[in-house]
């Protein structure tokens, strides 16, 4: 059975709860740099997808390091806090920053973004679902993307819908064979590594 490897980057303001992969705790430990997690997802069709998730630090100071972590990403999850409008407002900036630093730019209007609103367990919502969908639509039109950015809402505390965004990415994002052939530019180092790791672990194959 083929196994796909996807690099996913989580971005968003500090404190929105990008640590959705970790056990929820109020004992807050800020991310310094970026945390690395892997997630193995087996889809209904038997396809196995391995997600390599970079949970990046939210504080502004750490953004200049983004380039090290964004490079070669296959998907990006934009995180915001539904109880904090500022975090939602900053998403456009985060998105732009990501595209610039990852070296994607306008070359790939279909780069898969996912919108994820966190903390829906808190009863002080200020960002509505409609607003989130509006953001998604707006950016789809701007970039001329064929697929509208999907929106998810989750509660890391209660563990609601946390997996949905990852599942969606595992289902929909595929590295086209073409892209693998045309190794170069931003993703090269990672893809080269993929090739090497395939050699080592024969069970593995991209796509």
């Amino acid at each position: 059975m083929g196994k796909q490897l996807l690099k996913v980057v989580l971005i968003g303001d500090g404190g929105v709860g990008k640590f959705i992969h970790k056990r929820f705790t109020n004992a807050y430990k800020a991310t310094i740099g970026a945390d690395f997690i892997t997630k193995e997802i087996e889809l209904e069709d038997g396809r196995r997808v391995s997600l390599q998730i970079w949970d990046t630090a939210g504080q502004e100071r750490f953004q200049s390091l983004g380039i090290a972590f964004y490079r070669g990403a296959d998907a990006c999850i934009l995180c915001y806090d539904v109880t904090n409008y500022l975090t939602f407002e900053h998403l456009a900036k985060w998105r732009r920053e990501f595209l610039n630093q990852a070296g994607i730019g306008d070359s790939n209007p279909d780069f898969p973004f996912v919108l994820l609103g966190n903390k829906i367990d808190i009863d002080e919502r200020v960002v509505s679902r409609r607003q989130a969908r509006g953001f998604a639509q707006e950016h789809s039109t701007v970039t001329g993307s064929k697929v509208e950015m999907p929106c998810f809402e989750a509660s890391a505390k209660d563990g609601i819908h946390v997996e949905d965004a990852f599942l969606y990415i595992a289902k929909t994002v595929r590295i086209p064979q073409m892209e693998l052939d045309m190794v170069g530019g931003s993703g090269s180092s990672r893809l080269e590594w993929d090739a090497e790791s395939e050699r080592r672990k024969k069970s593995r194959s991209c796509c």
Binding site: G15, A27, Y28, A30, G58, Q59, H90
Partner: peptide, 16 residues
């Protein structure tokens, strides 16, 4: 951990 818990709000501000 408890020592650092209370600085959480500093972290939560974007740019602090």
């Amino acid at each position: 951990r408890s020592l650092f818990k209370r600085v959480a709000h500093l972290n939560q501000d974007f740019g602090s």
